[in-house]
């Protein structure tokens, strides 16, 4: 096996991001869409960690950024779930296509 470089990690991060993005476009279930948005954040986080490890030297800026991203993701999820709850009360459905009619 070859030695693991920067690009291996970046590829995994990219893959997770693209997967999340594709899911958020394709999926019809709103919970699944939320999960996919979290996937996107995770992919970004992996990129941050990779760059912090390979290019950051002794500073931990990338790692600190991951912390903030995680917090932002949690906040965003809470708000999104509240909106989902609200919409579900009105529409009685978890299909995202029905949420278009306001």
């Amino acid at each position: 096996m070859t030695e693991i470089t920067l690009y291996h990690y970046l590829f995994v991060g990219l893959f997770v991001f693209v997967l999340g993005f594709a899911g958020s476009i394709v999926c019809k279930n709103i919970i699944k869409v939320l999960i996919c948005i979290e996937f996107m954040l995770t992919g970004v986080n992996i990129n941050f960690a990779t760059f912090a490890k390979y290019c950051g030297g002794s500073s931990a800026d990338g790692f600190v950024m991951i912390l903030f991203y995680t917090a932002i993701g949690a906040i965003e999820l809470a708000v999104a779930l509240y909106i989902f709850y609200f919409m579900h009360c009105k529409k009685q459905s978890d299909n995202i296509e029905k949420y278009g009619e306001l």
């Binding site: 986080n45 992996i46 960690a49 990779t50 490890k53 790692f63 991951i66 995680t70 993701g73 949690a74």
Partner: peptide, 21 residues
């Protein structure tokens, strides 16, 4: 993903990832 963070030498982030995500 938390395993990845651990591999990249950031144990703290791995723990955070485990706890939150």
């Amino acid at each position: 993903t938390s395993i990845f963070f651990w591999l990249l030498g950031s144990e703290y982030n791995a723990v955070i990832q485990l706890a939150i995500y």
